[in-house]
Design a protein around this nucleic acid. Sequence first.
DNA 1: CATGAATGAGGGTTCATTCAT
DNA 2: AATGAATGAACCCTCATTCAT
Lengths: 206, 206, 206, 206
Amino acid sequence: MVKSATNRVEKNNKYHQILEAAIKVFARQGFHQSTVAQIAKKAGVADGTIYLYFKNKNDILVQFFNYKTKEVFGSFRTEVDRADTCPNKLRYLVRRHLEEFQLNREMAIVYQVETHQNSRLAEAQIREMSQMYRDLISEIIEQGQQEGSIRKDLYVGLVKRFIIGAVDEVINTWLHAEEDYDLVSMADPLVELFIKGIEQRDKTID
Amino acid sequence: MVKSATNRVEKNNKYHQILEAAIKVFARQGFHQSTVAQIAKKAGVADGTIYLYFKNKNDILVQFFNYKTKEVFGSFRTEVDRADTCPNKLRYLVRRHLEEFQLNREMAIVYQVETHQNSRLAEAQIREMSQMYRDLISEIIEQGQQEGSIRKDLYVGLVKRFIIGAVDEVINTWLHAEEDYDLVSMADPLVELFIKGIEQRDKTID
Amino acid sequence: MVKSATNRVEKNNKYHQILEAAIKVFARQGFHQSTVAQIAKKAGVADGTIYLYFKNKNDILVQFFNYKTKEVFGSFRTEVDRADTCPNKLRYLVRRHLEEFQLNREMAIVYQVETHQNSRLAEAQIREMSQMYRDLISEIIEQGQQEGSIRKDLYVGLVKRFIIGAVDEVINTWLHAEEDYDLVSMADPLVELFIKGIEQRDKTID
Amino acid sequence: MVKSATNRVEKNNKYHQILEAAIKVFARQGFHQSTVAQIAKKAGVADGTIYLYFKNKNDILVQFFNYKTKEVFGSFRTEVDRADTCPNKLRYLVRRHLEEFQLNREMAIVYQVETHQNSRLAEAQIREMSQMYRDLISEIIEQGQQEGSIRKDLYVGLVKRFIIGAVDEVINTWLHAEEDYDLVSMADPLVELFIKGIEQRDKTID
DNA sequence: CATGAATGAGGGTTCATTCAT
DNA sequence: AATGAATGAACCCTCATTCAT
């Protein structure tokens, strides 16, 4: 029993070693420019060992979305539930999103690249995760509409893209920036833009 | 004169044949999965012919950004100049953007993929184009602030990402959608979101 | 210990298999006309295997000069040291040279071709070996001059070329001959020519 | 008739232009590394034009040996005939040989390389020329033996290689030398080595 | 479980040669 | 005769995957 537990940990170790190594390598060079040998070297295992834990090179990417990002996106819901009003839920969501991506720069890179591919190598996983995120926003918006804090005349599908896209681009810009800066500090101003828009409202009224 | 014109067209023909074929192939399979042989076949030329017009496979992508997208992004400015007020400029810009990308689905795919890569194969071209777009939005926002239609307390850098990202995601969703729908119809509602945000404003005031 | 020895032999085997095969192929067709696939086939390995032992096709040639000919030229010194007088040293050197080249016909061919190229693919190696040979002759001549058996009014640099060239051509002729004959039997008459020249000396004096 | 003559000259011009250009290119890069396009460019003609004057790339090399070196080797006989005694004939031959090769460095390079190849691309031409040279030396030696100036116990075949090889190597060394020096000045000392050898003869007798 | 040597299919690129103009 | 764009066969090399140890 002890042995079994140890083995399992060992196994997990190798599995995670390889996965983490792969993410680093993919992040730097992109999936297609990365070789299995590079991943193996970075993970400190033999090339062949990778095939004991992953069906093939592609499968590493699939597992990445299953293991790493599912965990991250799962945490989003917890975070959203901590807030009560719609604007706060949105704020918490975006903050957490940026926080996580800032902490996991390499994950962020791989995520950005692969979700924008056409022939997605982890299509199913990406769709599932994307759906989770969109559902979360749907719920927030709908709650806001019930609360009366959000307009009722919105095409919710579009609002989702509006929010997702903006967050995405804020991350994307950060990833491609020459110098590093704090990504999380973008959260509140961004959410404010979502809510209020860019319009100058009449001062006497406001 | 006729001959000269013909020659020019002829010459352009091969170059454009290859470029258009390449875009189609890249759009379907991604750059790395595409082979020079596939491009040649689709263009109706021999493999070697490609190397008379392009330095190497990579150069096809670079030329694509120089020729195809530069043209498209150039047209954006013309469109923006046709409108006078800031909201209209924004509306015209987004409409045109979605129009062009809807008309050139394959270009759109390649554009989306390559601009989100980490190790960008056409880095210089992408940066230049991206800069053009951001400058355009900067101008619009600043004009709006002078006009009094746009809030003055905005971090313009963030506004740019907010707009670009949202448009990007609207296109991205369209590209990955199971069924086809009219992309351009998203333009006005989207711009309205930029301007007004999602907030429910006080009814007595509104 | 046995295992270690076996491993070493095994390892050496593949490396040498390829090298020997390459020499045969190069000898028959010349370096540029030889393909990696031909070498692989002759060595009984897969094409890719060659790149586990050699950096590229060119490197095979470089290794050939490092491994094969360095060994041969090293043996020359041993041979020279066995003799005491200058004429004998020269005799032993030339004999050994012709012997080795006769035994390794393919090595001889590759050697002849590559050392006469202009843009030498193994420049460094060839220079080094060539230098070894010239140094050996220098020593022999100088010793002969001290002994009194060799004229002191010689331009040693020229003597080296005189000897090297003659030996070279004797080998070259043998390599291009229609029918095979004993190369080593040329050694003594050739050395005699070096020493005595072709001149008929006055009989009363002689 | 005038036109015909003109045409012929024109034709010859192009033919020689290409041939001279090819020699330069071959000399710098070797036959296999040289491309038809490079030769055409250096000759100032179109790629296709080369095929109006030469059957293929190989044929350029064949023509080179037919045209350039046959001329040079023909001049050797004239030179030899100017002298009367054997040693002088030998001296004139070697002088002329070194003179010609010094004047035509590029020819010398191509000659050296191609005559040492195994699979000779101009086999027939090289054999013929080589034969001419060997015949010339045979005649000289035989005359010397009749004159009494050359030993009669020589294996003439070996003497030929001895002389040819030494001259060859003197040229080869010159071609590969870092700095330029006068090749012709080697002629007389070299011939003296042929005749007298390197041996120190008894002083009282000498 | 782990290894890493070996495999061989596949792809980018070059270049001698052709042929319509 | 001259051109040079077009061709496509051929080659070097990479790398995902396998399998004997």
